[in-house]
Design a protein around this nucleic acid. Sequence first.
DNA 1: CCATCTTTGTGCACGCGTTCACAAAGACAT
DNA 2: ATGTCTTTGTGAACGCGTGCACAAAGATGG
Lengths: 255, 255
Amino acid sequence: MATGRTHRPATRSRGIPEATVARLPLYLRALTALSERSVPTVSSEELATAAGVNSAKLRKDFSYLGSYGTRGVGYDVEYLVYQISRELGLTQDWPVAIVGIGNLGAALANYGGFASRGFRVAALIDADPAMAGTPVAGIAVQHTDDLDRIISDNGVSIGVITTPPGAAQQVCDRLVAAGVTSILNFAPTVLSVPEGVDVRKVDLSIELQILAFHEQRKAGEDAPPEGDDPEAPPMRATPASRKGPDGDMPAVMPA
Amino acid sequence: MATGRTHRPATRSRGIPEATVARLPLYLRALTALSERSVPTVSSEELATAAGVNSAKLRKDFSYLGSYGTRGVGYDVEYLVYQISRELGLTQDWPVAIVGIGNLGAALANYGGFASRGFRVAALIDADPAMAGTPVAGIAVQHTDDLDRIISDNGVSIGVITTPPGAAQQVCDRLVAAGVTSILNFAPTVLSVPEGVDVRKVDLSIELQILAFHEQRKAGEDAPPEGDDPEAPPMRATPASRKGPDGDMPAVMPA
DNA sequence: CCATCTTTGTGCACGCGTTCACAAAGACAT
DNA sequence: ATGTCTTTGTGAACGCGTGCACAAAGATGG
């Protein structure tokens, strides 16, 4: 198959592309639904439709895991559920700590989908001393001062940050120092972490802004977003030249 | 489904790559912080560091917007803030409706970052009649029965779905029917929408599973990365093609 | 046992996104 | 004005991800 020259390409993730990893949970969810309906096997076409992806993409994704299908039949649902679960590391228990028990943190603690697959809310941590001891989702909130010990005692390797943006980096640093190597960040901040620590961010504001962009584009198909503006854009202090390039945006958008 | 008159490849949004659009909010956030500190200009290098991206990538991203920089100096912060805001459509008001006022929906309604940039929570909608009238974040919750009217009256074009997964598709359909063309989906479901409607999903469970994958990989760098398993995986119902106990997994694993 | 039919697994081509590296452009000092 | 120095803007190469299209594999029926 491969040339076999370099057995160690720059990709460290055991040959499974990141894009594929990101879709595995999607497949798993669809497969779990099928499993609950006691569907024995499923074709790539059916499963792809359920997961909202292309069937060829799905087959290629599965091919990275191995040959788990049967030609002419499809994939065995139970078997595939197990294989993907194992590949994603969901066959083991993942204690998770949530730091910042405000509205969002409390909501996540109560979120059912959290504990659904191997993930378990092991600790809730907040900087407000008044919150210490208060039960949220059946778990007593603990104070930030004990963060280090809490992480260690519970063997937490995944941390969720739901603090205000100003505190996020500091919390992140402390989590990492305590041994956390994966962080899910809900605070609208760019976190800097040492090598070997994974950070994924969930940013409501960014998602909305992306939607707004497309929304504007949809709505403004005859109302051009003009570079020059009837309002008063904060002009460059020294606007040496207005707009040099001509092709950047048409003066009139074709309707 | 009256929408979808113009079907666009969706690949090209006025020449600005999707990946660039997704980063513009990041730049905007960093620029806003600089603006509040009254920093007049910033170089691509500095801004890139603040946004957590590569400087070359940032310059290329900005080049899609036009030539807003000054060689030898950098970018004018205020001017760039305005340009990106305008490009993202944040110079106008975006009324948003949140459907499903549970823990998460309420948290989002209270979320400060929501109203920060042009977005305004115009309506909260829930299917529970008992919630109707209850104020959440200073806004009275309205019943799903009035969804259509609420969307129309407020001119809502962006909807946020925070319902249980079972209700998400139905809510989505109703939102679209009422005129919503952009949806931010927090429910762990694959939504199917007609052409011309944008859907972005925020899925806590998926993010955690991706983290777990990498976490497992990190932890098991000396553990057996082999597909075979000492446990008892749920076996295929028809063992006809059960790969022998000797060579069940291809011993050859790429890389 | 052979023919046929279904569905997987994958080689290949293409397009998007990222990164490098550098020439052009402008600021600033002399 | 001229030279130098800084930083942008971008051409080009590269790598990753996606989708097509088809051969191989196995089930199924005669």
